[in-house]
Amino acid sequence: MLIPCPYCGERGADEFTVIGAADPMRPEPDAPMEAWVEYVHVRDNAFGPHRELWHHVHGCRQWLVVTRDTRTHAVHGAEAARR
């Protein structure tokens, strides 16, 4: 599996670590407990395209949001995780 790093070009997936779903957003500190349980534990576990956080740990050390199909492992793209 090749990850198209926007800084380094296409690199093998073994240069990266992956942490999981990119879309859950950290709630405000005073958010209700349900919002924190949702953020920490509950996942869509997408069957198909999935936005996820990859870290180019053995490369440029940048965090990326990779869109990848969980049915086929086809990588549709990667962008910097900075917002």
Partner: peptide, 13 residues
């Protein structure tokens, strides 16, 4: 392998 997957096959690393 470490990434979400429903494909019943993994990678070479």
């Amino acid at each position: 392998d470490g990434y979400n997957s429903y494909a019943q096959r993994g990678g070479m690393p």
